[in-house]
Structures are given as structure tokens and as C-alpha cells.
């Protein structure tokens, strides 16, 4: 149950929510990220909604770690670009002909905060939801089984491809392939590495397809599942309220734009 998954196995009530409820939160925060008017509102959404939710799910530390790791480069680059190129009254400092304005800096921070809120909503879902539970919830709502399979198997099989690529690299090094050097030489390396990787993977696909057939994957008719997803009237209400709030935010945003 480990490997490359972001998911953290905890016993919190957030973990036990139906995957669709958590997905509703994610979409709600996506709308928040796009529709909230300014930096103050966005930061409020992050600190007073997302962070308490992460705390409820017992994932505060990894939530903060991941969100700041992703957002820091955005904060720096967006501040610099917007600060110098968006005009404004208040000049904070100048580099030759270029002036860094407070208004521009604020605009940059606002864009970064929008990314932060959207990212937070996605993190909340991935940290507390098993991918197979989410896919099961979606297939029960009509997502094709094959699509769910592609998502789930890619999550698991991709790291094995990395292992295999490493193995091929070592095998080629053992035969005297130079792996150092400048960019052009490194690019040329892709040929002896990707050839065997792609070919061996294609060979695997046939066996993998047979293994799936042997397990009745293409069998028509209803499928059942070992995993039990608990839903409740309260959660259905919650999803409905989140939907209404989201729609309300969009309407408000559109309305203020036309004012």
C-alpha cells in the first residue's frame, strides 16, 4: 500500500468521507481559486478553510510541506514578473529604467494565491483518498471500467518502468556506453535507452492483456467490489451545498465583472 502514493493511511473522519464528497471539496476550492476577488479572500480560504480541513484529516504537516514546496517558485517568479511589468503608482524600488511597483507585486501574489488554493483542494483529496476508492466511486457513477483501470495501473506500473529504465541504463553502461558529457551527448543517449525500454514494454502489454482476460476483466454485466464505500444523507446534502456555494461564487464573480 505504499510506494509512490501521496495517500496517507489514517483513521480520520475526513478519510472516511465518501470519495465523491472529497471530490466536491476539490471542485469547490477550484472555483474559489478562480472566483474569489482578492488576495485577502484567497488567503482566508487557505488558512481558515483548507488548513483546518487538513488538520481534520490529520495530514497538516504533509499538506503544508507539499503546498509550500510547489508554491514558493511561483511566488518568486510571479512577484518579479508582475512587479516589474504591471504598472502602478507606488514604486518600491527601481533597477535602472525598470520600476518595481507595489500594485504589480500584489497582482503577482494574487495569482500565486489562486494557484495555492486550487493546489490545496487537490492535495486534500489525494492525501486522504485511496485512488482505488475514488475510481470505484466514479465507476459506480458511470466512468468506464477501462478508464479507471488505466488510471490505477499507471499509478502502480510507472515506478516499475523507472526501475526498468535504470536497469537498461546499467546494462548499457556495462557494455561501455558513456553516460556523462554535455547536453548533446546526453540526448544521444536516449536512443540506446528508450529502444529496449519501449520494446520490452510492448512485449509486456500482450501478457498483461492476457492476464486481465484470465481474470474476467472484459466480462459483460455488473461488477461487484470488495471495498465498501459509505455514503450518507448528510454527505449528499454536503455535496449539494458545496455545489450551490460554487455556483453562487461563479454568479457573484460574473455579476461583479459586468458591473
Amino acid at each position: 500500500m505504499r510506494g509512490n502514493l501521496l495517500y496517507l493511511d489514517k483513521e480520520s473522519s475526513l478519510h472516511q468521507l465518501h470519495p465523491l464528497s472529497k471530490l466536491a471539496f476539490t471542485f469547490f476550492f477550484l472555483i474559489c481559486a478562480a472566483a474569489l476577488p482578492g488576495l485577502d479572500w484567497l488567503l482566508a480560504a487557505y488558512f481558515f478553510l483548507l488548513l483546518p480541513l487538513a488538520g481534520w484529516g490529520q495530514v497538516t504537516a504533509p499538506f503544508l510541506r507539499s503546498s509550500w514546496a510547489v508554491i514558493t517558485p511561483f511566488v518568486i517568479s510571479l512577484s518579479l514578473i508582475q512587479g516589474f511589468f504591471t504598472g502602478g503608482e507606488t514604486v518600491l524600488f527601481s533597477l535602472g529604467r525598470f520600476a518595481f511597483t507595489f500594485e504589480g507585486w500584489l497582482a503577482g501574489l494574487t495569482v500565486a494565491a489562486r494557484i495555492l488554493v486550487a493546489l490545496g483542494g487537490a492535495l486534500l483529496l489525494t492525501l486522504t483518498t485511496r485512488p482505488d476508492a475514488l475510481m470505484q466511486a466514479l465507476t459506480q457513477r458511470g466512468l468506464p471500467n477501462s478508464l479507471a483501470y488505466i488510471v490505477l495501473s499507471s499509478i502502480q506500473i510507472f515506478p516499475r518502468f523507472q526501475d526498468r529504465a535504470q536497469l537498461i541504463l546499467q546494462a548499457q553502461q556495462a557494455r561501455g556506453l558513456e553516460t556523462g558529457g554535455n547536453l548533446v551527448r546526453r540526448l544521444k543517449l536516449l536512443v540506446p535507452l528508450s529502444g529496449p525500454l519501449i520494446l520490452s514494454s510492448i512485449v509486456d502489454v500482450e501478457e498483461r492483456a492476457m492476464a486481465l482476460e484470465a481474470r474476467g476483466f472484459s466480462r459483460p454485466g455488473r461488477k461487484t467490489s470488495l471495498l465498501v464505500l459509505r455514503d450518507s444523507q448528510a454527505q449528499r446534502l454536503l455535496r449539494f451545498v458545496l455545489l450551490l456555494l460554487g455556483l453562487g461564487l461563479i454568479t457573484l464573480r460574473v455579476w461583479t465583472l459586468f458591473q
Binding site: 502514493l5 482505488d132 461487484t224
Partner: peptide
């Protein structure tokens, strides 16, 4: 032969039975 559709050994063994309904 591991389907990749499930994350635990228990789930992997159940996968065929789920498909059989």
C-alpha cells in the same frame, strides 16, 4: 500477471471475483 488495478494483495485476489460479479 499482477493486474495493477488494486493496491493490496487482498484486493488483487478479489479483482477476478469482482469482475465475475
Amino acid at each position: 500477471q499482477i493486474s495493477g488495478a488494486r493496491f493490496t494483495v487482498r484486493g488483487e485476489i478479489a479483482f477476478g471475483l469482482e469482475n465475475l460479479g
